[in-house]
């Protein structure tokens, strides 16, 4: 059931994204539709990345499923770049501080995630050639 909910939410997000893009474009016809273009592109990017990810990750053998989790977790810590902008741009102090905490949390995953993935992958060895 939760998967159905999650799927429905995902579909709804996409649908709303598309629809609201339409509304916004209609409301601001003078803006020559640049906003809708940008948002449609983002939906394309998401779909293509999700399909690519699906194709590649179904080929990852169960042997490497734990490193896979660690690796994707480290990669999704790219939210660090959003945190950096919030911590460093011209905003009220409390928002900068929230950004700094976010930077710290994401950095834990970037540094720790890549290090531990490498540590794990280093352990996977084939049988040595017979002596």
């Amino acid at each position: 059931m939760i998967s159905a909910v999650a799927t429905a939410l995902g579909a709804a997000t996409v649908a709303i994204t598309l629809m609201s893009g339409g509304f916004t474009a209609a409301e601001s016809a003078s803006a020559s539709g640049t906003l809708i273009d940008a948002q449609i592109v983002e939906v394309y990017v998401f779909l293509l990345a999700a399909f690519t990810g699906f194709q590649i990750i179904t080929k990852v053998p169960p042997l490497l499923h734990t490193p896979l989790m660690a690796a994707t977790n480290a990669i999704s810590a790219i939210s660090l770049v959003a945190s950096i902008v919030i911590a460093g741009s011209e905003r009220p102090l409390y928002i900068n501080i929230m950004g700094a905490i976010a930077v710290a949390a994401a950095t834990v995953n970037v540094v720790g995630g890549f290090v531990i993935t490498d540590r794990m992958l280093k352990m996977f060895k084939k049988t040595e050639a017979p002596k």
Partner: peptide, 28 residues
């Protein structure tokens, strides 16, 4: 990202990066 023109102050970023690394490295 660090070269982003919106960024005007680096002190909070550096604090975050240092704290995160100090926690993350031993965890890794």
């Amino acid at each position: 990202t660090l070269l982003n023109h919106e960024i005007i102050t680096y002190e909070y970023i550096i604090i975050g990066l240092v704290v995160g690394s100090v926690i993350g490295l031993p965890m890794g």
